[in-house]
Amino acid sequence: MESIRVFAPATVANVACGFDIFGFAVASPGDEVVLTRSETPGVRITDIIGDEGRLPREASRNTAGISIQKYLQHIGQPELGFEMVLNKQMPLGSGLGSSAASAVAGVFAANELLGRPLTPLQLLPFAMEGERIACGSAHADNVGPSLLGGFVVVRSYNPLDVVRIQTPASLYCTLVHPDIEVNTKDARFILKNEVSLKNTIIQMGNVAGLIAGLMTPDYDLISRSLVDVIIEPVRSILIPEFNEVKQAALDAGALGCSISGSGPSMFALSRDADVAERIGAAMQQAFLAVGITSEAYVSEINQQGPKVLA
């Protein structure tokens, strides 16, 4: 192949109690990359669609571009040439893993064009470099599920140890993105550097409970464990009407509701597609009550991750 078009999905990171260690992929939205082989060495971004001119066109400063560059260096072929068109299909600063989806789409496309010399798991460190460019931290809770699909646990960063776990087939996610923006760096800056022993114990119990609930499956345990006593109380102040929107989701039948990534998007989990749609409508209405419009997405957990488009 000389050219390829790849879609990489949005993700929900943290998943309430799992700050920087939990994440899962959804069906939509996502980003697309069209990558074409070129005789001119290096990675060149020829166009970016949907970013309103905000993203850098220089490959070494772009999440998708730097991921491909690091990948080519690793496989010993930095002289290879690629031209890339990036189609941003979700808003920046949304809490949906926008930068991660771009990085994943780019490095996955390059690996496909070169005959898959590396496995998806082996591509993860290069996608993480895209996150470092985007927010200053090479975290894996977005790029992991976007690249591997499903629900991912980042057990360790040094050494990198990422585990994909089984989730119930009937588990649905409702994502609502209010039309406001939260900068990821700002959302990390306001976090406290120290956590009380009491809250640490509570959070560890919820982390263990959520994993057990997902793998059993035990929906009541999932519901009881979707509680964040460390990050959510701080970051929720950046989202207008957060408590009202969360309560609307719970009243509509959600197992739990929290912030997606660093926000302002919010997610809710449920065990039925109709309930998931009803939750989305209720959350949107709660935002609209204070004049904030939003977009809603409903899907099962995306087990595939990135895919080649015809």
Rank of each mutant, 00 (worst) to 15 (best):
S225P: 00
L121T: 06
L197G: 00
Q77P: 00
A110L: 04
D31E: 05
E295V: 02
P159K: 08
I237E: 13
Y157L: 12
T46I: 15
M1V: 04
S236D: 14
Y71H: 08
D274H: 06
D51R: 09
P56W: 06
A254Y: 07
V154H: 03
S270A: 13
S156L: 02
I301K: 04
P233K: 08
G42M: 09
F126I: 11
S60C: 04
Q122C: 09
A296L: 01
S67T: 05
I45M: 09
M215Q: 15
E129M: 15
I201W: 11
I230N: 05
F82R: 02
F189N: 14
L35S: 04
D161C: 11
P306I: 11
R235M: 07
S223A: 15
N62F: 02
V308N: 02
Q304I: 14
I239L: 07
R224D: 10
R155D: 10
H177Q: 09
Q166D: 15
N142C: 03
R224C: 05
D220N: 10
P217W: 05
M283Q: 14
N62K: 08
E39F: 08
V153P: 00
Y219V: 05
I4T: 01
G18Y: 05
N111G: 03
D179C: 04
A134E: 02
S260I: 07
A249W: 01
P306T: 11
L123V: 06
I201F: 12
L124E: 03
A248K: 02
